[in-house]
Amino acid sequence: MPETASLQKRKTGRKRRRAGFDTAFGRAMLQVVAVVAFFAVWEIGVRAGWISAFLVGSPSGIFSVGYKMILSGELVSDTWYTLFEAILGFIIGTIAGSLLGLALWYSVFVARLVEPFIVAINSVPKIALAPIVVLWFGTGLVSKVALSVSLTAIVALIAAYQAAKDADVDLQSLLISMGADKHQVFFKAVVPSTLPSIIATFRINVGFGLVGAVVGEFISSQRGLGHLIYTASSFYDLNTVWVGLFTLMVMGFVLYYVIDMIERVSLPWKQSSTTHQVQV
């Protein structure tokens, strides 16, 4: 029985591979070691003169600059400002885009009519709109939010429309045979089946929301992490640039897990399938 034999082999092979560091604690340790080693090499390299502190900054310098900025309240206010712009842009863009994408399900005629326009809009790199957006919406908060919306809305629209098109036809037929009308098919079959795709775009769009906010601040602004990074880099103040970048990284990191939590709460029926992966 060659089939049983190969199954057996795979089983034992998997067992062997999972041993050692492949536990939650082991992985966390390896991750911490990697981060510490990275900064240690960086710091040693700068102190020993192998790499230029002028061009790359240094971990100790970043730490002291960051500490000072936290104490002065400057970092906190810039962080909140950028976070606010990004989240506002993300929420408006994702909701508007998703609603439009879902609405296109209602009329095949309208959907076919606007499809090339959606593709055309999507193929413009939205970042290129930044100068115009600043011209239109000024140098304040609105222009950053508008840029974030332009980035996130199109992603949400395309994902929602595609998911609505792909919604299981048999489930819709079943509802129709039960006497459901178009609204009921939409709300009972189409909308719930698009939710996983829509929530999947949250992950991408949280990042795009930040991109919009930061790029908007690069172009013109008086506040925010983008402004901080841009001005500091023009003074070759690399440590301050790194403080801004690491803050953005932490922000994106936290937002990612917030989305993860939203996904778990809103899609309880999807759970447990995602934790298993076929071992090859």
């Binding site: 489930l171 079943l174 509802l175 045979s177 039960m178 009921q184 009972k188 719930p192 029926w269």
Partner: peptide, 30 residues
């Protein structure tokens, strides 16, 4: 339409609905 009970080879249970929610589907549409 609306007066037949259609059952197919696939059970066509709505994955996002619980057992109770699935059973209630037709009564809800009505």
């Amino acid at each position: 339409r609306g007066r037949v009970g259609y059952m197919m080879q696939k059970d066509l249970l709505f994955p996002w609905r619980t057992v109770l929610g699935n059973v209630l589907l037709g009564l809800e549409t009505r």
